[in-house]
Design a binder for these strands. Structure first.
Lengths: 234, 234
DNA sequence: CGCGGCTTTGATGTTCATCAAGTAAAGTGG
DNA sequence: CCACTTTACTTGATGAACATCAAAGCCGCG
């Protein structure tokens, strides 16, 4: 992990939006210790946060911004595993069963990561069963989401795939019918298993059919219901 | 879950092969309680063990046999998530974050499930941090495997996909170059995202090229190294 | 014995990746 | 700040890969 970009900052974990997720299971002392030990690291858009093969030292989640988790194959082609939003874990489930990362992470937007020493995390989990259960629930939900999404994408044709990811950006990430795509056309292709050309071609078709409006990376969903139908039925 | 097939049996958890995985973290008393509360359920080949949407009542793992985890879409088509071997968990990670199953499970071979009340499992995990951590590690490893496999399959063409799954059966499941396919051609197709016809066509090509020998469901890998190459490079 | 499901092969057409080529945008160094 | 390089985006043409449709043999089961 790279530490050079900006200064590590601190915030009050009492205020953290993840509090209800698992800090609730801390007593005062635990929370203080956690707060003291955690560090926050800012990363600028485009920078690599974690490289495949790197040793796992921290348990970390995304505090703000947007990051992609991806794998690079032998021929250098990337495959995007998932895109993580604020308060999603960047540490996936392997975090406790592996010693090295099996994927890379890079920042799609300026982002801040909240990190805590993995050993410390384990210690807490060992001692505090409620915390540990809560953590398991959260990690499980993330894994489930990734598995589900991968299956959903796999069964769609090109039109369905593009509609699916447009709806995902609009609904799950930006909660708006108008948004700036955080990823290039190539990255969209890497996410849904298509070629860059066909992503563009499909987007252009959607534009011609007045389903969407495109202005560079800005996209507006004009007929979300129709896109929904395309996503579901191809 | 269906209980009607055969009688629930018991075994000594001290002898269980999963012992080192997490029973090690039990003290004598905990192990006794666990052993008393768990039940073993036999299912005959082809029977449905869990149906999508069903309430999650048990944490369960496969003691013997072979099962498939799958989802059924609106049009009735199945998509196989993964095939679980003995001592794999049938309960995936959602187990603690969901109340209902998001997938179905059916027996590919005569199988025995070891089940324990999910509430009891949670109680133990809450109290025993080591157990809980171990559980998390194991669940994490399973999830990771599923995610990885899904990504691997997605990036292969038909030849690569078929070679990949043949090698998986041979190496991971049966540990032999000769094995009986536990699944129909259609199920292979549902596992790797192809049509049944193209699975058969590809298998026939492999046979004509003397890469494999086929006798109904019995398959022998004659040139595993060549299949390896096909799996990796298409 | 006949029905339904599984397997297999062939013919056909659609979908999609690849190749090629050009424009636009964005970063780089003098 | 501008020429230059590189990267992103876009469209078209082509062929290969793959799904679909059709038909027939096989096997197990009621």
């Amino acid at each position: 992990m790279i530490y050079i970009i900006g200064m590590a900052t601190r915030c009050d974990c009492n205020q953290c939006e993840l509090r209800t997720a698992f800090f609730n299971n801390f007593n005062e002392e635990e929370l203080t210790v956690f707060c003291d030990r955690k560090i926050e690291l800012p990363f600028s858009r485009g920078s690599i946060i974690i490289s495949e093969g790197e040793e796992i030292k921290y348990f970390s989640y995304l505090k703000s911004g947007l990051v992609k988790l991806y794998r690079t194959d032998a021929s250098g082609k990337d495959q995007i595993i998932t895109i993580a939003c604020p308060f999603d874990f960047v540490s996936l489930l392997g975090i406790f069963s592996e010693t090295r990362y099996t994927y890379s992470v890079s920042a799609l937007e300026d982002s801040v990561l909240c990190c805590i020493d993995i050993r410390h995390m384990k210690e807490i989990a060992m001692k505090n069963g409620n915390f540990s259960m809560n953590l398991m629930e959260r990690l499980g939900a993330v894994s489930n989401k990734i598995i589900l999404e991968s299956l959903e994408i796999r069964k769609r044709n090109t039109h369905g795939k593009v509609a699916y990811i447009l709806l995902k950006f609009s609904r799950d990430i930006y909660k708006d019918l108008v948004f700036d795509m955080p990823v290039s056309r190539r990255e969209v292709a890497e996410n849904i298993g298509m070629t860059t050309e066909n992503v563009i071609r499909t987007l252009s078709e959607f534009r011609r059919e007045k389903l969407i409006r495109i202005n560079g990376r800005e996209i507006e969903l004009l007929k979300p219901d129709d896109l929904e139908r395309i996503s579901t039925y191809g």
